[in-house]
Simulated scan of single mutants.
Amino acid sequence: MYERILYPTDGSEGAATAVDHVREMAGAFDATVHVLYVVDARHADYGLSGAFLADEGSGVRADPVPDDSGMLGEGGDAAETRAALTERGEEIVERAAAKVGDGGVATETAVATGTPHEAILEYADANDVDLVVMGTRGRTGIERYLLGSVTEKVVRLSDAPVVTVRADEPE
């Protein structure tokens, strides 16, 4: 039923909560998991990925990449910053793929650049993805309205079914 599962990740704890679900579903259907990271092009020129939060317990730490001045986007070249963010994305997908592949699941990794939800949808279409599995932080109210939700946009616009896994709220 599902041959290709897309697991978009930004290296956050919210995304990491979906790893077990991805692994179980891929194992059940003998599917290949495509692990995708998107460098947010809206912010990459300024040296901000928009997704880099150091989350305790996720097993994946994604720190912003400073330029030579030690500041994000100040004194550095936009192309260098984008290259550094892409390199960081490659590290994130490799770590996530290793976690997903622990149970013998086949994985493929990719790093894309663009608006996150658009890049995820484009990747899903281009790779004939059968299912998307994503973590979500479970924002509500004004925070969700102001920040938007990549997961919500993918759910609304994806041709493939989308499974969302909500991160536990801190006590």
Results as ranks from 00 to 15, higher is better:
69 S>N: 07
101 G>V: 03
119 A>E: 10
59 G>K: 00
73 G>K: 06
111 V>A: 12
103 G>R: 13
76 G>S: 14
100 V>E: 02
124 A>K: 03
90 E>H: 06
57 G>Q: 04
66 P>C: 06
64 P>E: 15
58 S>T: 04
84 A>R: 05
136 T>P: 01
61 R>H: 11
129 V>K: 01
114 G>S: 09
88 R>L: 15
124 A>M: 11
88 R>Y: 05
81 T>H: 10
126 A>K: 09
71 M>I: 14
106 A>G: 05
121 L>R: 05
64 P>D: 09
91 E>I: 02
77 D>I: 02
69 S>M: 08
103 G>H: 12
99 K>V: 13
135 G>F: 02
133 V>L: 15
75 G>V: 03
123 Y>K: 07
96 A>M: 09
119 A>L: 06
115 T>G: 04
112 A>M: 13
60 V>T: 11
120 I>T: 03
113 T>E: 15
81 T>L: 11
112 A>E: 15
132 V>H: 09
64 P>F: 11
108 E>K: 15
115 T>A: 12
111 V>I: 10
108 E>L: 15
86 T>C: 07
63 D>R: 04
66 P>S: 09
129 V>M: 12
127 N>P: 00
112 A>L: 12
64 P>A: 14
89 G>C: 10
124 A>G: 03
64 P>I: 06
117 H>D: 14
120 I>G: 02
81 T>F: 04
63 D>L: 14
104 G>S: 11
92 I>W: 02
73 G>R: 08
84 A>L: 05
110 A>H: 10
129 V>L: 08
66 P>N: 08
118 E>I: 11
117 H>P: 05
71 M>H: 10
61 R>N: 06
60 V>G: 03
103 G>M: 08
95 R>E: 15
105 V>W: 00
85 L>T: 00
72 L>F: 13
83 A>E: 14
134 M>T: 04
76 G>V: 08
87 E>G: 03
126 A>Q: 13
124 A>H: 02
109 T>E: 12
69 S>E: 13
116 P>V: 04
73 G>A: 13
97 A>I: 10
57 G>K: 05
88 R>I: 01
125 D>W: 09
106 A>V: 10
101 G>R: 01
72 L>I: 08
122 E>F: 07
134 M>S: 08
61 R>E: 14
111 V>H: 06
119 A>T: 06
83 A>Y: 02
122 E>P: 00
110 A>V: 08
77 D>V: 07
74 E>M: 13
107 T>L: 14
102 D>Y: 01
109 T>Q: 05
120 I>L: 07
128 D>L: 11
85 L>K: 00
104 G>T: 12
104 G>M: 10
67 D>G: 15
